[in-house]
């Protein structure tokens, strides 16, 4: 990838391979993800893009049939190293899922879940975290009068922004988003996209999307995955205006996928 500016790397992935039992789902993936930018991962269903993003915070390990090798360095630290704590990794790397998944608790309880499990008990600090996180996730105005209400009372789009707020509450360095708008209507999608633009000033964002326009609108760099390999990874403008590979061009022009 020909980035002229040498931004510090948030992630450096080298020769990553992943198997679901015998299915070789990720093959020799190597990718540098610069900090404070939006990196989009696109590709047809089953190409390994969701698997890849879940490897970045080691969520794939929850599936016992998964085997990985290769190297992922999060800010110089090898995340597969034996002495590297997965809990530490996941405090630094937040995740927003495809379907909004708030806890069956109040809005307030949802936001303070992360800080509480990491030992913050002081009521005043927690109150501040709630306000700050909800404001950052652009949902404070809609929720400030109903913090004690159950999060399930919110609309789908609001729930997803609450999930983003919940993720921001632990002050992560990186936010992984796995098709965060695929379950949402266009207006909620727009709000989340605006939010992503705002968040990239402070956070590194890696987003999986099957919506190519979305990738074009919000990302700085785009990687195109196909059948478990990276076909092309470059600046988003370049990928969408003059892709180097024929597969990429076919995909973004809608000829398959």
């Amino acid at each position: 990838m020909n980035t002229e500016e040498k931004a510090p790397l948030a992630y450096n992935v080298e020769q990553l391979n992943l198997w679901y039992a015998d299915n070789h789902a990720l093959q020799d993936i190597s990718m540098e993800i610069p900090e404070k930018s939006v990196t989009a991962i696109i590709g047809p269903s089953g190409c390994g893009k969701s698997t890849f993003i879940k490897t970045l915070n080691r969520m794939t390990e929850m599936n016992p049939i998964v085997k990985t090798n290769g190297s992922i360095k999060y800010r110089e630290n090898e995340i597969f190293a034996k002495d590297f704590s997965v809990e530490y990794l996941r405090t630094k790397v937040g995740m927003v899922f495809q379907n909004p998944n708030p806890f069956p608790k109040s809005i307030y309880e949802n936001v303070i879940y992360g800080p509480k499990i990491h030992g913050i008990k002081d009521k005043k600090t927690l109150d501040e975290i709630v306000e700050k996180s909800l404001k950052k996730a652009a949902i404070w105005d809609e929720t400030k009068d109903r913090l004690k209400e159950n999060a399930f009372g919110l609309s789908g789009g609001q729930q997803q922004r609450l999930c983003i707020a919940r993720c921001l509450a632990i002050e992560p360095d990186i936010i992984l988003m796995d098709e965060p708008t695929s379950a949402l209507d266009p207006i909620s999608t727009l709000k989340i996209e605006e939010l992503i633009q705002e968040l990239k000033k402070d956070y590194t964002i890696v987003i999986v999307t099957h919506n190519m326009q979305q990738a074009a609108r919000i990302s700085d760099n785009t990687a195109f995955f196909l059948n478990g390999v990276i076909v092309e990874y470059d600046q988003t403008d370049k990928i969408f205006s003059s892709p180097a590979k024929k597969e990429t061009e076919d995909y973004i022009s809608g000829r398959f996928g």
Binding site: R90, T91, N101, F103, G114, I117
Partner: peptide, 17 residues
């Protein structure tokens, strides 16, 4: 739901938490 458990793990919660 697995979703909800994953949300917890993804925030660095241990299994016990």
């Amino acid at each position: 739901p697995t979703d909800v458990k994953q949300a917890s793990y993804a925030m660095g919660a241990t299994k016990w938490q």
